[in-house]
Simulated assay, not measured.
Amino acid sequence: MFDIGWPEMMILVVAALVVLGPERLPGAIRWTAQSLRQVRDYASGATNQLRSELGPEFDELRKPLDEFNELRKPLDELRGMTPRSMVTKHLLNGDDSIFTGNFDKPGGTSPESAGPYTPPQTPAPKPLGHNEKPPIDFDAT
């Protein structure tokens, strides 16, 4: 829920120690823990009450939420990416040599990024003959 690790927790404890002082800090921690436990109990009690009252319809109500969470997964994958890493991943196939300057060893994992880019060859259009009308493209007009 709150993505708090041990370093952040220690910073919060030190800040609380400075703000509250050593005599009021244990009481504040106890009050915070009790409040969080009570909120969690209320939430689980409300969920259990809904589940018991609605029965199997509760699972049908959760279906759209599950589908929404499935749609959010690609967005979570993009979160935390910098523009540089997006360009490297999606446009350069993971080859970051343009940014690092190390052109001897391409960093890409795909075989397409190993060599230089060569555009596909298209045949040249044949020139029109004398008094020949150009073809008409009805979709373009």
Score class of each variant (00 low, 15 high):
R30N: 14
L65D: 06
G94N: 02
K63C: 02
P119F: 01
F68E: 05
R37A: 08
M81H: 07
N102E: 15
A43H: 10
N69L: 13
M81G: 01
P111I: 15
D66R: 14
Y42N: 03
T122W: 06
L61M: 06
L78V: 10
V87T: 07
G101T: 12
Q49R: 04
R84C: 04
Q121S: 13
T88P: 00
P111S: 13
D66F: 07
D41G: 06
R30Q: 15
G94T: 03
V39A: 03
F99K: 05
A33E: 03
P116A: 10
S113M: 08
P119C: 06
T122R: 05
R72I: 12
P74A: 07
L78W: 11
D59V: 08
G80I: 09
L50W: 05
Y117I: 12
L75S: 10
E77Y: 15
P120S: 11
G115C: 10
S113F: 04
L36Q: 13
Q49W: 01
G27A: 15
A33F: 08
G115T: 14
F68D: 07
L92M: 13
E53A: 07
G27T: 09
L75A: 09
G55E: 00
Q38P: 02
R40C: 05
K89H: 15
V87C: 06
N102L: 08
F99V: 05
T100G: 12
R72E: 14
L54F: 00
T88S: 13
K73H: 07
S52V: 10
Y117P: 00
P116G: 04
Q34Y: 10
K63W: 12
A46S: 03
R84W: 08
G27N: 11
L75G: 11
L65I: 08
N48H: 05
T47H: 00
S52P: 02
T88M: 13
P120Q: 11
G80M: 07
G108Y: 08
A33H: 01
D66C: 00
G80H: 01
P120A: 12
A46I: 03
D104H: 12
Q121A: 15
N93A: 11
K105W: 11
D76R: 11
I98P: 07
R84S: 11
Y42Q: 09
P119K: 01
E77H: 12
G101F: 10
T100Y: 12
R51V: 01
